[in-house]
Design a protein around this nucleic acid. Structure first.
Lengths: 221, 221
DNA sequence: AAAAAATTTGAAAATTTTGTGAAAATTTAT
DNA sequence: ATAAATTTTCACAAAATTTTCAAATTTTTT
């Protein structure tokens, strides 16, 4: 999860950033609209946290200037009780709204909630590979591939964290649950089966030595 | 889809309307309870979006004054944190509520969700399989199949959620009720009977291992 | 180049989950 | 009240999945 924070006050940015890092969110911070726009141009973010009151280009102006196809779920930070802000913001299609002063915990909660309701993909496609999370199915070349539950879980998790190395411990704790006392290497066996089942897509699962595995979207060098 | 919006604030109405139009919903707006009642009298709406706090006749009063046969799925707009509102509203049979300030995107999402769960069809057909949800009948090859009530409920639920894996817990909570302390496996037995009764359509009920079951529309390769 | 470390792999063992028939319990109809 | 129908429980078999383990392989380090 990658978050862009735009606020002119450094203190606020730092607080938010700190909390985000605890949650393992990737964070980029900008202090004005212009540099924020540049960042949005270059990188892909999941969520935008945006202060309304900023010198030069304010939050609304920024929103208006984001090209349509680059718009992302946005949480607005604004001064308390500013009804006018709210309405304006709504018209521009913001997704949530929190008034200053706010508790960083609440902001985090809202970020999570927002990402959950916007980034809930039902289907993931990569060329002819297609995962339907609702149906619990994997298709390759339009043919159903039968995955075991664990294989499906692992694949889902890797894809949720695509392009990110996921450790064995992480997999174990997320997919097996808190107290698992089995062999680390169990995962390897599942990965083996998973790779076999992925057929020609098998090398999208990369082993990251001494860490774990990652699912890559683009077969890189 | 036709929506009636009742709110005394013009700005809010406009925002909602705009978003609804993007979704191709038909919209009618009223600014008070009285004119809303008249509109409900005259036209047929699919969903009512209703502000609680209004001068003269408030939202609750409006709900109470809608004749029983004219009542429609309702989403309440209420001031944040007003717990009392929520409860009162629920007792009157509202279907969802959202607190102000709200994101219009979320409202749209809720409207869609609500319409999905209330506007269910009366009849479902798949080749020569035909379910009449009103009559509670199942026909295959034009022959009546006698299902027990539970079997019919399960089949209905699976079909309402066709192509989605449904967990045993979900089935239990939806079909048996909140607090059921029986055996999970009861469901399996019902599924067994259901499959037998479905005859040649038996393999439209797929078991999703470690989850539950799903009804698939297309027998996939 | 050898040793060490980490991963892959195949096969077997252990475990879990599901299908099914029959009986018991409960509800509904006669 | 009795019979019939429905629902639930249960246990065992069957099927599928998960785990273990050790040898083989690959990669990294010394």
């Amino acid at each position: 999860m990658k978050i862009l924070i735009v606020d002119d006050e450094e203190k606020i940015r730092n607080v938010i950033k700190e909390y985000c890092l605890v949650e393992n969110f990737e964070v980029e911070e900008k202090e004005d609209g212009k540099s924020a726009l540049e960042a949005l141009e270059k990188e892909k973010f999941d969520i935008l946290v945006l202060d309304i009151m900023m010198p030069k280009m304010d939050g609304f102006a920024l929103l208006e200037n984001i090209p349509k196809e680059k718009r992302i779920p946005t949480i607005i930070l604004s001064a308390r009780g500013d009804e006018y802000d709210k309405l304006q913001g709504f018209e521009l299609g913001i997704d949530d709204y929190i008034t200053k002063p706010f508790s960083p915990k609440e902001l985090i909660a809202r970020i999570k909630a927002l990402s959950k309701r916007t980034n809930h993909q039902d289907i993931y496609k990569l060329n002819t590979l297609e995962i339907d999370f609702l149906q619990h199915t994997l298709k390759i070349d339009n043919k159903l591939i039968n995955l075991t539950p664990k294989e499906f879980e692992i694949l889902s998790y890797l894809i949720e964290n695509k392009n990110i190395a996921v450790s064995r411990e992480q997999l174990l704790s997320k997919l097996w649950g808190y107290s698992y006392f089995g062999d680390d290497r169990t995962i390897d066996t599942h990965i083996k089966m998973l790779r076999n089942n992925l057929g020609k897509y098998r090398n999208h699962i990369i082993t990251v030595r001494s860490i774990g595995y990652k699912f890559i979207e683009n077969e890189e060098e």
